[in-house]
């Protein structure tokens, strides 16, 4: 699986560029590179449902990000400014926390089964009963719409709430026409 490692390295480099570059449009495009390599990794680990959703969601995310950048500014003027003491303190604090977190996750990940050997205690039951109880051939669809449909109802609620939030924050009352 050499291509999996290649995409992981590419993704990490693109993520680092996205956080550090001065041009905000370039940062958004690097974020898109991360998202599309995540989609390709989803295909490589046999998750076509996730790959389809990730690709289209990534396109919409980039469109919204670019719209915001076009309406505001291209330049990240905070890069290259003199560091204040609180900024230095936040970097030191982050480094300390990252070290602790890294050690803790290494110990926690050792408890997991190794890559490529997932234990499927619950999933084997779903796979056995999927076609007879739910009836769908797509087992992921069976899980999200039959066995765990309440989870999907909660997701729909969260999406509805965020749409209401966006519309309420951008509502047309009190807006003036753009002079252009």
């Amino acid at each position: 699986m050499i291509e999996l490692y290649l995409f992981l390295v590419f993704m990490t480099v693109a993520a680092f560029i996205a956080t550090e570059i001065k041009d905000l449009l370039a940062a958004v495009i690097s974020l898109g590179a991360v998202g599309f390599s995540v989609a390709i990794i989803f295909i490589l680990v046999q998750a076509p449902d996730l790959a389809i959703v990730q690709i289209v969601v990534e396109v919409v995310t980039i469109v919204i990000f670019v719209a915001v950048v076009f309406r505001t500014t291209h330049v990240d003027e905070t890069i290259g400014k003199k560091l204040t003491s609180s900024h230095v303190l936040s970097i030191v604090g982050f480094a300390f926390f990252a070290l602790l977190f890294f050690v803790a996750t290494v110990r926690a990940l050792q408890e997991l089964p190794a890559f490529g050997n997932a234990t499927m205690k619950v999933a084997s039951e779903y796979i056995r009963l999927g076609l007879s109880r739910a009836g769908g051939a797509n087992l992921v669809g069976d899980v999200i719409l039959d066995f765990r449909a309440l989870d999907t109802l909660g997701e729909a609620t969260v999406l509805f709430t965020s749409v209401i939030g966006v519309i309420a924050l951008m509502r047309s009352v009190g807006r003036k026409k753009l002079k252009a």
């Binding site: 389809i52 009836g135 992921v140 069976d142 719409l145």
Partner: peptide, 11 residues
């Protein structure tokens, strides 16, 4: 075709 092939309501 969300119950037969990859995809579904979200995608």
């Amino acid at each position: 075709h969300g119950h037969l092939t990859p995809g579904g309501g979200f995608a």
